[in-house]
Amino acid sequence: MTEREAISDIIDAHRHLEGSLLPILHAVQDRFGYLPPNSNRLIADALRVSEADVHGVISFYHYFRQRPPGKHAVSVCRAEACQAQGCRQLEAHIKTRLGIDFHDVTDDGQFSLEPVYCLGNCATGPTVRVNNTIYGRMSAEKVDRLFERLAVDTVRLLS
């Protein structure tokens, strides 16, 4: 199935819903990890809205990605509870360690970094999420070990 066909199928599965744009965008991102460039046009045509209308919604929500994420999509919580536990320092450490800023992807495509505001894990902050797994009580050392392990896993998987 081509990317185009997959997107069309997703649109067809949701278009009957009232306010179907958001469910469609979620489903496309769930499928591809991001919103592929030609999805705007396909969605706009199907919903009888303009390409700019779709773009306006996508760009409003930080959750929607317009570029492929890294293999390991890292989110750092910046909400109040985590800040009280020192997440700003952790955030700086992660940026240095990965060599990227928020919304970027490492050159090797392994890691991407996003801010997030509360993952509901306030009791055990600072919190980091990698793809769908949540890690509490994170520190610079723990993050380093986690990233090393993830990188090694990838190498092992590739070899």
Partner: peptide, 10 residues
Amino acid sequence: GTFALTVDGR
């Protein structure tokens, strides 16, 4: 009636 413009970001 073209809807070519939008507010990008927030």
